[in-house]
Amino acid sequence: MQNVTPVTIAELKTACQAAKAEGCRLVTLSCAELDAETVDIIYHFDKDLSLKHYRLTAKKCEPVPSISDIYFAALLVENEIQDLFGLSFSGLVVDYKQTLYLEAEVRKTPFCKYSVAIANKA
């Protein structure tokens, strides 16, 4: 994977605004768990068929600012990450509150390997 720029939570929104001003199309966000406390969120942008990526390493307990007010297309994928990883996005245009895919009876946040163990300890 080439063309990856690391960003912090504070820089995220300005970086996305800059990408939009450059005429980039938001392709999607990918989320992957790193360890018990952090996840990687990768923002994929496309311009003239070449990709660039922003990598945000976020703590699971801290809310991530939503970019759905800049790119409306981020709406579904941010809700999906809320469902699957248990992160929370602040300022979502439409917040499904972790019910986009999953019903209440399903184990929450299936993509977090560590969350169950932490809950048991507490």
Binding site: V27, T28, S30, C31, A32, H44, F72, A73, L75, L76, V77
Partner: peptide
């Protein structure tokens, strides 16, 4: 991680 076209076409 799979991002499919219909996912992008819903907005």
């Amino acid at each position: 991680r799979i991002r499919t076209p219909t996912f992008a076409n819903i907005p």
